Simulated assay, not measured.
Amino acid sequence: MKIVIMAGGKGSRLWPRSVEDRPKQFLALTSEETMLQLTYRRLVRIVPSRQIYVVTAALYRALVMEQLPELDEGKIITEPVQRDTGPCVALSALHFLRQDDDEVLVMMPSDQHIPNILALYEALSKAEAIAESSRSIVTLGIVPARPETNYGYIMTSETDSIEGARKVTSFVEKPDMEAAIKLVQLPNVYWNSGIIVWKPSTIAHSMEEHQPELWSALAGGGMAPETEYAALPKISVDYAILEKANNLFTIPFRYEWEDLGSWASLERVREEEADANGNIVHGVVHALESSNNIIFAEGRKTIVIGADDLIIVSTAEGLLICHKSKEPFLKSFVQHVEQQGGGVG
């Protein structure tokens, strides 16, 4: 199987650390290596490096080459502009179909924390076998560790399965906490990991069936479909295909997993670094009578007094002060400020 790392997003939920010029996948958030580098290093442990590709926006192509100098330029699939995961997946499929290559693809986000790489390989191998033998789409479903409002959920059949994968019956968009508490009590519900395993021809068939205009615009571009890319709609692969497909299965994944798309997720991964008062700090930070904060100070001394349960982030791009309970509003508010010409990101 080939693995395509998706590395084209903006990462607005980690503003102001993650900004448009250098979003989260190109940042060192959990170690000295960036998320993209960590993802690549993990994957080369389970598949040959020649089988690993990166799909990214033209804006970030130079960053990919800078951070992964060992990656051949021919392994970088370039989106002319950012158009969400639906067009991204379609362009990736076309990249291989133009070369008469229909080997199974794993489409994987670049910013996930999956420390048990051998368990991941086992799950992907099961998914590969299913995707290879039929025109099925296989996802990895994460067994929920807690009620979570930042992730979408996958509901599956309790009886209909194939080779260890459960038939998906429906998707649930990011729920409120009350709904999330109910969801995690069900035995057939999983977090949507965003990891998808399928053949390029399956992607093409699904696009033709569910997004014919999008696919026609790309495929009609001949050997240079990228010229049509800017006119494509911004649509996620979930909306474009997965929520409409009737040949969708999920393999339960019961190991540690985090989508490092928010300050809360970063806190969970770095919780062992917390001080005696539960503060997780980065930079020159002095905290007095303050507890359970995330404090990130870049390039300047920071003093925090009498603050609890806050996210405080200071970078050259801006200053964020946010109560942890209000973090779900961060992405939409950053986008609102951008639209108002506020210069965020």
Rank of each mutant, 00 (worst) to 15 (best):
S18M: 05
S262K: 06
N279M: 07
L330E: 04
R270F: 15
M65I: 14
V313S: 02
E208L: 07
V281L: 11
I137E: 08
A274F: 07
S49D: 13
L120M: 12
R135E: 10
F96G: 07
V143N: 01
M107F: 12
L63Y: 06
I312N: 01
Y229R: 05
D100L: 14
T30P: 13
I305C: 00
N292D: 12
L266R: 00
T202M: 03
I181R: 09
R300Y: 11
P144L: 01
N116K: 08
R13D: 04
R270T: 15
A245L: 14
N150E: 07
I295K: 00
R13Y: 05
T78L: 00
Y153F: 11
G152K: 07
A245N: 15
L43M: 11
Q340E: 13
L91S: 13
Q211L: 05
Q112I: 10
I5D: 02
E208M: 10
Q335C: 08
L310W: 02
K174S: 06
D160K: 15
M177H: 12
I203H: 08
T149W: 03
V334C: 00
R98I: 15
P144D: 01
V81M: 04
S216I: 08
V47E: 15
V172F: 02
T202F: 00
Q67Y: 06
T139D: 05
L63Q: 13
C322M: 06
P252N: 10
A90F: 03
Y53F: 12
G341Q: 13
G345V: 00
Y153S: 02
V54P: 14
S134Q: 05
E79R: 01
R135S: 14
K24V: 01
S134P: 00
T250G: 12
N293D: 11
E289L: 00
V197E: 06
G141V: 03
I294H: 09
G74N: 08
P144N: 05
R146D: 02
R41K: 14
E273H: 13
I294M: 14
E148G: 03
I305N: 05
S216C: 09
S236Q: 11
L59Q: 00
Q340F: 14
H210L: 14
D308K: 02
V106L: 04
Y229N: 14
A90M: 05
L68R: 08
L218N: 09
N188G: 10
G220Q: 03
Y40A: 07
I294A: 08
A119Q: 15
C322K: 01
Q340N: 08
D21F: 02
P328N: 07
E178Y: 03
A28C: 11
L218E: 11
P16K: 04
I3W: 04
V269F: 01
N150A: 12
A93F: 05
F333M: 00
I76H: 12
L330H: 03
N246G: 09
R17P: 02
S265A: 15
F329Q: 08
V143K: 02
